[in-house]
Write a protein that binds this DNA or RNA. Structure first.
Lengths: 352, 352
DNA sequence: CTGTTAGCGCTTTCAC
DNA sequence: GTGAAAGCGCTAACAG
């Protein structure tokens, strides 16, 4: 576009001085400058070192990440795949992960996949292209092996290329994971409800294709099974959002007006369920008891406060990030379990 | 650690094949392979192109981001500085920013600064070192120029190095910004309350050092000023969290038991305020009206639903990210305003 | 403890 | 339309 100049003017350098310039200005070799400025095990004469450091500061030297990555064949970048950062569940996981990333001097690239398999694959490729040192997968994998396979394979590819993968939720063999006790938590919720005398119980599920939901559903049913009085669960599916919960609850009430308790498999949805119950004129917990899952911070401030199953979301994020920087196990994959706990609050009470 | 080998075994390549290997396998030059595989304006014979593409796929070639960054002197990485991703306000901004980042094929590195100035500076440096193409600053800057200066200067440094900076909130001259109408929104809240007949009004502020809070406080006071009946505002400061709001409201009630309305300058805090009011036996809105700020999604589902000032958080995130990739203005900085709107719900009513 | 010297993988003139 | 070659900025042997 611009006219060619015969004397190539020294374009204003993009990122300050280069290491070479610092070395020259300090009267040392490139190697020495490198050693003092960018962490090396090799030791350098303290005085010289100090001098180089001064010159670097004066020249506003800033290391060139990409160049270092190229030379070192490794980066300090970690990818984090979430369904949606704007969902409190994932933002908590992200916050946990970032806390330890910060301690370890890692930069976190967050990718919102909107639960779109194509996007997920694409992001993994892009993170691989950036030579991210690791990828954290926070979203629940699909139950259907056919659907899970592409993701899993792409992850394995990436892993084989030298990257580390840690998943929150089971992505199958060879992929390290931290596993929330969804089954146990849901089971506890069921026992709680049946102990209160509930027999006709609604189950508001999120997308059944997700193992998270499948596990919670299964755990709840197993709890029902082991309770006296032959309690029965009526399951309905909804979108993984507030409105999805609202909508599903309406349908549940229409189909089974006699339920005295509802188990909603995610708090985001439970918020909608609470609204639906209210709009339907059902008092909580007097007419209908409500139990959620995840224990989002807002739960305690809902009216009534929501009984729910606590999941240590931040802790899982931290744990996953810790695994990323840990030594890889020689034998088999690393699996860490994260406990869940039933938190009883005001939204549950004895059956009417 | 491991014993030195005389024959340096060809270590399993970290990221699959290199461009050179693809070129060789395809029987073309490195340059040609580069042209077909990584976007170039130069045109290549369609057949040859197709052939190279096939070979690349077969060899599982994945471009090497850092190497490209080095050669091109530019990256597709953007930094996003937030106080805390786990705060719904920031996670919404992040979600908006990521949506357009995705459209533009940009990867977003998110940094949690916990409102720590040191950390902020450090992250900017690190993002600069990674040669991030731009930095989005989402957190409110400090009011005190002395405190704002280091951040501002670091940002300017980065910008001078060729990076783009866009801030949500005013970081001063030369830094592009998207500015939420905090003053106007707060003003509207005041007018709403005084119109309902309130005269003794509590103001629960977040950290007064932040311009966001200062603006909201100022706007509210100006609204009070322009109202009839000489309404008076009692301001109290609290931490920028649910508990901060709870605590500050308790103190407010103790100091000014006669308030009939409370304006809380952030919804996160308003959630705590609502609880404090409830715990103090004040009915909302019968005894005390409550107005928040931000319009977090949960507001509509609180009991009562919270009257609040809507801020287009996601929209601001989108806008900011859009500015990042837009042409830089030749003259002066780019500033975009984002409107706010009072949303009246159940938490406000006529003065007792 | 310090300097020399190969690259790391890719882009981009510049010739052909 | 295609290839050869010169780097981009830095690290890591290797030799002194």
């Amino acid at each position: 576009m611009s006219t060619q100049r015969s004397t190539p003017s020294p374009a204003p350098r993009r990122g300050g001085a280069t290491l070479q310039q610092v070395a020259d200005a300090a009267g040392v070799s490139l190697a020495t400058a490198s050693r003092v400025l960018n962490g090396s095990t090799r030791t350098v004469n303290p005085e010289l070192s100090e001098h180089v450091r001064e010159v670097a500061t004066r020249l506003r030297y800033v290391s060139h990440g990409p160049a270092q990555a190229l030379a070192r064949a490794t980066t300090s970048l970690v990818g984090l795949l979430v369904h949606d950062v704007n969902d409190p569940y994932f933002s908590a996981v992200a916050a946990g992960a970032m806390r330890v990333a910060r301690e370890r001097d890692l930069l976190v690239m967050v990718a919102n996949t909107y639960r779109d398999p194509e996007l997920e694959l694409d992001y993994i490729t892009r993170l691989g292209a950036q030579r991210a040192r690791a990828i954290l997968v926070a979203g629940s994998p699909p139950v259907d092996p056919a659907l899970a396979k592409p993701l899993r394979e792409r992850l394995l590819d990436y892993q084989q290329g030298g990257g580390r993968v840690v998943s929150i939720g089971d992505q199958g063999p060879d992929i390290d994971a931290v596993l929330p006790a969804n089954v146990e938590g849901a089971r506890a919720a069921a026992l709680h409800l049946t102990a209160l005398g509930h027999r006709e119980i609604g189950m508001v599920a999120g997308p059944r294709g997700l193992v998270t939901i499948a596990d919670r559903s299964e755990g709840f049913r197993s709890g029902l099974m082991d309770s006296d009085g032959d309690p029965v669960g009526h399951e309905i599916e909804g979108a993984f959002t507030r409105d999805g919960g609202y909508d599903a609850t309406q349908r549940l009430l229409a189909a089974h007006p006699d339920v005295t308790a509802v188990f909603v498999m995610a708090d985001v949805m439970a918020i909608g369920a609470l609204a639906a119950l209210r709009d339907a004129g059902r008092r909580v917990p007097d007419d209908v008891s409500l139990v959620g899952f995840d224990d989002l911070p807002i739960c305690a401030d809902l009216m009534p406060a929501l009984t729910t199953v606590r999941v240590d979301t931040e802790g899982m994020g931290e744990q996953a990030m810790r695994m990323v920087v840990s030594e890889v196990q020689d034998e088999g994959r690393a699996v860490v379990h994260s406990a869940t706990e039933l938190i009883v609050r005001g939204s549950t009470g004895p059956a009417a």
